[in-house]
Design a protein around this nucleic acid. Sequence first.
RNA 1: GCCGCCUUAGCUCAGUUGGUUAGAGCGCCGGUUUGUGGAACCGGAGGUCCUUGGUUCGAGACCAAGAGGCGGUACCA
Length: 492
Amino acid sequence: MSKKTKTLRPKARRPKGFEDRFGALASAENALIAAAAGVYHSHGFDPLSTSALEYADCLGKFLPDDDRPNEGVFAFTDDDDQWMALRYDLTAPLARFVAENFDPLPKPLRRFAVGPVWRNEKPGPGRFREFIQIDADTVGAPGAAADAEMIMLAADVMDAAGLARGEYVIRINNRKLLDAILGGIGVPQTNEGAIQRMRVLRAIDKLDRLGPEAVARLLGEGRKDDSGDYTKGAGLDAKGIEAVLAFTQAGAGDLNGTLRTLEPLMGRSEIGAQGLGELRAIADLLQAAGYEDGRTVIDPSIVRGLGYYTGPVFEADLRLETLNEKGEPVRFGSAGGGGRYDDLIARFRGQPVPATGFSFGVSRFAAALHALGRLGNAERGPVVILALEGDQMAQYFAMATELRNAGIRAEVYMGGSGMKAQMKYADKRGAPAVVIVGEDERTQGQVTVKNLILGQQMSGQIKDNKEWREGRPAQVTGARSTLTAMVADTLN
RNA sequence: GCCGCCUUAGCUCAGUUGGUUAGAGCGCCGGUUUGUGGAACCGGAGGUCCUUGGUUCGAGACCAAGAGGCGGUACCA
């Protein structure tokens, strides 16, 4: 044996895009989930929990000919060689659930769901490989009223999440309008046309980030970005590019104004008229319900990335500019979105089942709040009961129980360190107060309660070390029987 | 995936044209204070200078490759 044997230890590290959340961020996520769930539940949606894993084909991907179903999902083969995949959203599992249990379910089915979803993509600010979504969906409701409700729900969730008016906007569009435009400029209803249509959607999706000039190139031949990377375009001709861009820029302040601007662009297209009619119906309902106060706009440049949408789509955007540590603006993407997906369940059943929903991106929203400096301080810590005498633990536990029964968050110090370390611990935990019962107090039937917040304020004024040490500021001693009252008093 | 920038203590960063013992601030730990956190003073611990290879008498510094991070771009059903 050599003098020094090197111990091989695993390096503690975290996979990229899988975030630990602790303290204020974790509390914020929990609060957002509770707020959104409250909104959904109050609207009559019932909770549904489904598993993290699904069969890959049920999630809507075709099996691969080689080793993985798709780059975008985490997948592996089960013992029986079936492809399993972690869910990448909550909508596909809903479709599977509905198709599997169709007959006994009430229709329309109104359910909400919350949980982590996983996507194997490159992480970035507000983009994770594991993140929490909370969705509400109505299945079996064909009318525009169901879409309008989803949009109002989205606004309600933004309100419940603590945003003020003007800090967010719900942008609404309809996939059918774009279909009409594309039909008008000769994009065929073939496989090739579908690819072209997808490219157009992706190009439009980049409008806010790259601007109309770059998007025009993406709609046409293609674009070379600053890094020299080339992106193949959708191959539209000049007229087509102009038509698409004109469409995306047709947004005008209010709902009615935008609809009037859009009308002539649709020409005689039947699908266009249908899309306009749906938007009109949604707009009327939003106006009647008072949601047209800047919270909702029709914005033809909103397309949403997902391919399964068939009609109205919408997106909840933060209007606050977020900056990173260097003061540079950061794009977080939308805080939530949704739309109508009438064909998703038909995939399983063969007959159309109309559905519409909204998904709130909890993790991204919390990350944005964090970047905005809106999370505030971590939750205030518990009252800490110092464990000064090892044989008195039962008494300390009894005190903690008394405090809890009075609705006060409290804990007994569980470490093995001395009084000074216990005080430091309480400080680091953000404890508002500590309860001190040592031999002195115990033998006299008393307790000491120290107000850590007041003590901290007072420490700023005291210059002399001895003075603040011996002065024992911000603490009171009283009879053991008055513990709860003393602590409650300190907390006020 | 492609392009660019970056990598020195727990964190933020210094580190002269390559020169011998690698620094600061903050944080952490301890002491002043063996029953008192937070101010102050004093002290201490903590480094594979990302890794490997090369150039050199000599590399934290120069070169190459790799890894990781950040940003952009693509993908995002």
